[in-house]
Nucleic acid binder design. Sequence first.
DNA 1: CCCGCCTGTTGGCAGGTTGTCAATAGGGCG
DNA 2: CGCCCTATTGACAACCTGCCAACAGGCGGG
Lengths: 205, 205
Amino acid sequence: MTSEPAPRWRRLEPDERRAQILACARRLFGERHYEAVSTTELARQSGVARGLINHYFGTKRELYLAVVRDLMFIPEYAVERLPRGTLEERVAASMDRFLAVIERNSAMWLAAIGTGGYGRDPDVERIMHEADEIAADRILETVGLAGTTAGREELRAMIRSFSGMAKAATREWLVSRTLTRDQVHLLLCTTQVAIITQVHGTLFG
Amino acid sequence: MTSEPAPRWRRLEPDERRAQILACARRLFGERHYEAVSTTELARQSGVARGLINHYFGTKRELYLAVVRDLMFIPEYAVERLPRGTLEERVAASMDRFLAVIERNSAMWLAAIGTGGYGRDPDVERIMHEADEIAADRILETVGLAGTTAGREELRAMIRSFSGMAKAATREWLVSRTLTRDQVHLLLCTTQVAIITQVHGTLFG
DNA sequence: CCCGCCTGTTGGCAGGTTGTCAATAGGGCG
DNA sequence: CGCCCTATTGACAACCTGCCAACAGGCGGG
């Protein structure tokens, strides 16, 4: 007659539970900064015991790093089928796709480049650096310099520096609203072309 | 006969004590990130009771913000007596002074821009933004566009974006050692000139 | 259909951290 | 010399994090 007592908690697959906690962490870390989020609250909002978070991620810090790593995965804008044309045309086209992706995933992008808690954090810095490396490779392909050998590392370093400007510029566009999309496009295209033709050209032309 | 018992602690002027704690905090936050520094250690190394830190700065967070604010005060590279000449020459000269200052205070500079570089933390973000504003004004003076009215805000926004690249580039130079000082100089000069002549010129020329 | 085992999950403990506040004592001044 | 102002201390309460032994959901063998 009496139905069996409803289980007090459901047993999930590790991957599933992990993803659930990660999603909740992404949300909380997204709206508040590191130290303002306690594992206690994280556990409560995830609907699990606090100890489970340590079981899956080890430490609060590692959970945070997992979130950052996760956010850095931005759907890549297809590089294939880029129009053949002058350097300027190809840069303009790829930058256009880039901004389109950013615009569609603006929240995620801002969260990703805006992540970093406070204080210099070598771990976070390393993750950001890896992401910049990937972006640099993509740009090299785009502009058809993927096979360059002379001054390759310098060029990559300059492109990583350029990424710093791209991040700041998209923030001006999407957060401060002080630049329009077209202005950002012009700014980034001009700069990128200048770096490739003038700077890299001067040094290793 | 017995000399009077040596006082167990010295009474200092508030400003003096405040500065002493701040100096210690600057050192510790410079070598480790926020959460890895405890107020307990801060107090011990400062040679004061932990409670005194809260008395002077309120909270650990506010102490941190005070450090950041302090670090952002970089001795300004004199703008006066800039050589009269072409735009390129003036930009090159001012950039040279800029890099010289950076080189002399590299630890401080890296701590400042590494701090939050990109912070979801609104307070830190606001401080960094103020510093960028000041830098933008200085650049405008340098290139002799301080009086511009057409597209002034857009130009400032672009210069702030440029600051993002300058930060990343100095990091490549001083931390990763992937760029030389000369290469950074060339990169920044070329970019800045391109922004002013091509981008700003195109839009509001 | 029931039982036993594997392992996902819990809950409480120990050490450490932060902000507060009443009490203490340095040292300048009348 | 002694008073008084206030810089400074030390202890307390609340909280947080990492750890771990114990518990129980639910799948597979008998």
